[in-house]
Write a protein that binds this DNA or RNA. Structure first.
Lengths: 397, 397
DNA sequence: ACAACTTACTTAAGTCAGTAAATTAAGTAA
DNA sequence: TTACTTAATTTACTGACTTAAGTAAGTTGT
């Protein structure tokens, strides 16, 4: 419930401040008069809010306002250099860390070896990564909005707890509090796919879309769902388990214990496993081997099948959520059209009425630091406080 | 975007007013001190807000506050008799209209013959229904919050337009404006399943759940999705097409033109059709005939299959949204356990990790006036302005 | 039974973020 | 150069909150 806990009209200021900041972020440089029109606020209020934002360095004046027969407008724009954030993604044997600015642009990135996934190891290594990034870039801690981390698994965003992660073998780890304690900056935790979705919503193709579906295909398959401008996390952060919808009843065994999950057919490990069954002679052990044999009709057929399965389930999701936009990311984008042609076709074929006819499906180029950048955007999102995003990414204090 | 169009601190009052009104609605009679604790507002503010609500008749004082060693608290409660609303459901050859109070309780209902579904006919008949309900119950127009209508199809809630309805054969009908013109009360339109979901969220099992899934099984199959306390309508009101998710790839032809839709297997018309194929000798033409033969193993098997299909797709939906609660309604609840035992089992079997293990699935008893009651709650919801529900149900002015 | 205490609510004074209207600022046009 | 236009700020006022003090209406102890 949103009850304005113990609040006076200063809430109004916060709301207006956010609204104006977001408008500047989304609609580029604008004059105070333009802000006035877009916000419905009076000129005097705009003056006040803007000078507060300028005092905090978040907004700056720009040259270039053209007169239309009177005093020329002063253009205002977000000063993306005003703050920084660190984002971290945990991987098998290492940790990827990036330093971004307020605009989600990566300024610097580095990798740190990660001997194991024990929480204390993770905390120590993240601490090292943060100090390294700060000294390398000459940024002071005060400049830092916080540290964001995306984790594969179920996260209690509010309390900063990793409720469960198969990948990390974690169960109820209060990683937010541990990091906060060790590093002394605000911590923002979330599921990794959600983090990617937040980045996409703030800085990517979803900037203008308040209903979008983000899916990632890679080691696992996941979805970040944004409806009414807000991320859907569900009762206890368990939403978005797109990889575990049923693709084939009674089908292949999935790691999760169920049978026939989409992930058991179309995730990278599943593709590797299936290709070995299908084409023993090709001697495929890693995803890279698969990419070498895209010409082999058996492999092509396999990827076609996987794309079709993803597309069909995506169509179901589109039928349920009627989004403005679909973004596809993850390591799996390397497969390119081999995977996505059949996906697109299946999406069109199985979506209701015209729901997918003019639905943009964007395949996001993937790089090693994209997950980490998404994590950083969790910390950054505090500055924007996305429309009404409940408590987007609570720090662990 | 939520930008507080042209607003001062009176927004704060509106927000607090809504918060307090909703708290009283959800948590029964409370004293001002209790409201103070729950809202975080100061006592003085509570006094102000409450006296405004009492002036409008929306809240009333109650006896029964027990002293704990000092002045006894004065209990406050919502006065559900303060306002009324009319809700209307269009059916094949008639129209069902109900008059409810603020609490969604049906005070009166009536049916009007509907010779055809032409918009002008519908408007005329609804006008007749409203006047009849008002005179019969001795309610004056000023007492009426508005008229709500739930329509099967895609509705542009904001503009009050029925974008498309197969059932009514409507296309871009500005029914909201037409009704507003003819009847002169605020009109709230929405998809019929959404209307039912709003009723469930406001007055039913979803009162305390801000993430719930409502599905209806009957002539069609639909879903109303509530996440973060808000109804998901999607880009253009097309969300919730649960009946058209794919149950079997390349399966039975669906009325929508696709193949293998859930609705082609588990809607009432589909069940009738399938039973005829399966058991020609039973001479089944209507749903009632089906209900006569629940003992027949072929019919039992059919319903088992339908329930399983619904349950599997419901599991997928649960995997994606992680709701607190599932509510099942619609004419199909008449099938009872014949349909829902297998549904429940399939839901458990196919949902990820523990997402469904402690997930209540409520089968809502169904009556003729339930759809209409849902529609009325669209109009009523204005008074509650549910948490942050964007513009829940815009009138067509 | 009555003062003393406790708890519930209201009134009063101050603060803060808005609005509207007037003023200042900085350009174009004749 | 003066008049006009558009942009932004300043000023005076309003409304909804805050805290703090005051009033209301019970219970408790002697």
């Amino acid at each position: 419930m949103r009850s304005l806990r113990g609040n006076d009209q200063s809430v109004v200021r916060v709301l207006n401040r956010n609204a104006i900041f977001n408008t500047l972020h989304r609609e580029g440089p604008l004059s105070r008069v333009q802000l006035k029109e877009r916000s419905g606020l009076s000129g005097a209020a705009i003056t006040g809010v803007v000078s507060e934002l300028m005092r905090d360095g978040l907004v700056e004046e720009r040259e270039g306002g053209v007169s239309s027969g009177g005093r020329p407008p002063v253009l205002l724009a977000v000063n993306y250099r005003a703050r920084s954030a660190v984002g971290i993604k945990l991987m098998e044997r290492r940790l990827e860390a990036v330093l971004t600015n307020l605009g989600g642009e990566v300024q610097r990135h580095l990798q740190v070896e990660l001997p194991d996934h024990h929480p204390t190891t993770v905390v120590r290594m993240e601490q090292a990564a943060v100090t390294a990034l700060l000294t390398q870039s000459g940024t002071c801690k005060e400049h830092l909005m916080g540290l964001g981390m995306g984790l594969p698994g179920v996260i209690d965003v509010r309390r900063g707890v990793c409720v469960h992660s198969d990948y990390l073998q974690w169960q109820d780890v209060p990683i937010g509090a541990l990091l906060e304690e060790a590093i002394g900056v605000p911590i923002a935790l979330d599921n990794d796919v959600n983090a990617f979705a937040v980045a996409e919503r703030l800085f990517g193709h979803g900037k203008a879309a308040s209903n979008l579906i983000v899916i990632t295909v890679g080691r696992g398959i996941g979805a970040g769902l944004v409806a009414n401008g807000q991320l859907i996390r569900g009762r206890d952060g368990g939403a978005g388990e797109f990889g575990h919808v049923v693709s084939e009843k009674g089908g292949r065994r999935c790691e999760c214990g169920k049978a026939g999950c989409l992930e058991a057919y179309a995730s990278e490990p599943a593709l590797v496993a299936r290709s070995r069954e299908l084409a023993d002679d090709l001697d495929i052990v890693r995803v890279d081997d698969l990419l070498q044999h895209l010409d082999d009709p058996r492999i092509a057929g396999l990827l076609h099948d996987a794309g079709e399965r993803i597309g069909l389930q995506l169509a179901n999701l589109v039928n349920l959520l009627n989004p403005e936009l679909v973004v596809v990311g993850g390591e799996g984008v390397r497969f390119g059209d081999a995977l996505f042609t059949s996906m697109r076709n299946a999406l069109r074929e199985h979506s209701f009425a015209g729901l997918a006819s003019d639905l943009p499906v964007v395949i996001e180029p993937w790089g090693d630091e994209v997950w980490a950048r998404g994590a950083a955007s969790l910390a950054v999102s505090h500055a924007f406080d996305l429309d009404l995003q409940e408590d987007a990414c609570t720090s662990a204090d």
